[in-house]
Design a protein around this nucleic acid. Structure first.
Lengths: 215, 215
DNA sequence: CCGCACGTGGCAGCTTGCTGCCATCGTGTT
DNA sequence: AACACGATGGCAGCAAGCTGCCACGTGCGG
């Protein structure tokens, strides 16, 4: 089943949203859809009772969803309502929703015309998509953890230090390799560990890996 | 379009496999499908010329696909043929194939009857699934890297050590916390670092993260 | 019983990592 | 010029991590 435009989707699929009993998961590039007024309203109507009634809600976004402060505030609010939010560092479909593992809704990439939605209940398709979602979900990082670690705010120096650490050099060879004194190199490592909120170098390595600073 | 059984799939969708021009990706729990004789043969016919002609092939499996030696040997052979193989530590759909980002084939979880396949060309569905696949793919680890670090072969003790390291404890508190002597704890850490082929604790943390040993 | 292998733990000494202190140097401000 | 500020590096001392050595206990086969 294919519908065009948000209005038609809401008209024909609203019962799917409100009828979610056990689980509601969605993956999206950004918050675009839910920030549209009409969608917001119907979602708002659904949300309050939902979390209390044993419904788990999972939302997976790309970092694009954190672009502006309004979006971050909205996500924080959503989290406060018991919704699990994770951020994936890899591209995501523009919109994918799976409800109770029985029905799913996919949205096409934005084109010139109204957005096109596809609603499917085929168990084969839904299960396949659900499993892929689960894999992407497991690999993503919790929103709070993501906001805590400021991955993008690292300068080139810090990245160089990170690479040296990742290469397994001892401090002395790493410092020589980077043209730094031992003291300064260790200072840099200490700063890095502070920004990563790591208590040990092992933990720092773990965090660095989590935040995708390896590549 | 839905087909039942491997024979019917091959009869009706063989041209899709042989017609792949640019990209062939699949995600599966194990090698079950391709180890079946008839499927193997038609794949074998397709493979040789494929990699040479600018076709990229990506295969994503769970660790289940590495269960027996025959499977590992087959995967090594496949890799030698230029196919990219990655292992995801999270559950995957039983079978998902996307060809040239235009058509996809999903297989239902094995039931009592013949396996059921769904072939779809809807751009919305295919793009959605493709993006999810890409996210799962990016998060998975290269087969060679996976085989090098023996993630699954870690006993509970090692996992406990790993958790202690990840928690940022000092060796002393970690040892006390695990009921080990300092000496033994450090022995364990050294062993762990050896199996992870890490030269430093930082590197060990990085590897542990890469291999998905955080959870 | 003896010997053997293996895992464990204590000890000691060494290396590595960590950090406070101070001197130096360059930059930019008053 | 004088000054402040920040970044750097040397030094020293301490903390943490690493490992070789030996001793002890346990289990196993001779």
């Amino acid at each position: 089943m294919t519908v065009r435009g948000d209005a038609e989707l809401m008209a024909r699929a609203a019962h799917l949203f409100t009828g979610a009993r056990h689980e509601f998961v969605c993956a999206a590039r950004d918050l675009d859809t839910w920030s549209r007024p009409e969608a917001r309203r119907s979602m708002a109507r659904r949300k309050p009772g939902s979390v209390a009634s044993g419904l788990t809600v999972k939302k997976l976004f790309t970092p694009v969803a954190l672009a502006d402060e309004a979006a971050r505030a909205h996500l924080r609010e959503v989290v406060a309502n018991g919704v699990e939010v994770r951020i994936s560092s890899t591209p995501l479909p523009h919109e994918t929703i799976v409800i109770d593992r029985r029905v799913m809704i996919l949205a096409e990439r934005d084109g010139p015309g109204p957005r096109e939605y596809t609603v499917t209940t085929s168990p084969t398709l839904v299960n396949g998509v659900y499993s892929l979602f689960a894999a992407a979900w497991d690999a993503a990082t919790e929103l709070t953890a993501y906001l805590r670690g400021d991955a993008p705010h690292l300068d080139d120096d810090s990245r160089a230090v990170l690479r040296a650490l990742g290469a397994g050099y001892t401090d002395e060879t790493a410092a020589r390799h980077l043209g730094l004194s031992l003291r300064t190199y260790r200072r840099r490592v200490a700063e890095l560990m502070e920004t990563l909120e790591a208590d040990s170098r092992f933990q720092a390595g773990l965090r660095a890996g989590e935040l995708g600073l390896t590549g």
